[in-house]
Design a binder for these strands. Structure first.
Lengths: 115, 115
DNA sequence: TCTTAATATTCGAATAAGCATATATCAAGA
DNA sequence: TCTTGATATATGCTTATTCGAATATTAAGA
């Protein structure tokens, strides 16, 4: 992935919010991201797919759920950018609402499926 | 400027190369950027105008020449990101060529106009 | 197998981006 | 004022992006 492609991944609010949440939470499934961002499922899914195609995210299926996380095999130059992007987005109202909706979500798969 | 708008500014190769050169050189006029990137003048000018409209760049006319530089009044969260972007782009072949063409440019206004 | 929840994909439409070419503006100097 | 070099903008076109709505797929459980 080239630098400009990396920035293109973060150039859309929906994608940037997903990537930021994933940095903060580690691993989230599509329904959690859908609830957190309060957007339609196809919209979230489409953006996650494009982030995966660029190599920024990695997906893994666990039963019914598909989890996404930041691809651990990204080139070195991306880490500081991701870290500073997180810092920039974290303080926005938009992102605070995302986090709040995520925490207040009912039936989060992690808590339901355990053991 | 929102974070996603900031990233959109850097999501195009032409714009990213301009911003990177400007970070490295401080201040360049349109003809220098045109020579460095080896692209058409209208193309460069259009992208510079959009970077200016987003507030990422600042322009200043000095006689015939219009100089562009990184806007010194950017929000704080942009500085580390710009620094990271510079580091990421600097090592690319594309950018090395840009720098080389700039250094080998004839009649650079800075050198010609002095005193 | 039937159903349901989760996720992905397709389709068509609207909008935005990007480009090359041509032309306009602006400043300096003859 | 005329010309020239530097820069900006307009035009017409093509391609990308984004979206909502509908539909397909997948996995789990009854």
């Amino acid at each position: 992935m080239s630098p400009s492609q990396f920035f293109k991944c973060l150039s859309d609010d929906t994608r940037l919010r997903c990537v930021t949440l994933l940095q903060k939470e580690g691993k989230l499934c599509v329904c959690e991201l859908t609830a957190a961002l309060a957007l339609s499922q196809p919209k979230i899914s489409r953006h996650l797919a494009s982030l995966r195609q660029y190599g920024l995210l990695q997906d893994s299926r666990e039963g019914q759920w598909v989890y996404y996380q930041i691809n651990p095999k990204l080139p070195d130059w991306t880490s500081p950018l991701l870290k500073n992007a997180l810092a920039a987005v974290e303080s926005t109202e938009l992102f605070k609402s995302d986090l709040e909706r995520l925490q207040q979500m009912d039936n989060r798969p992690d808590t339901v499926m355990c053991c």
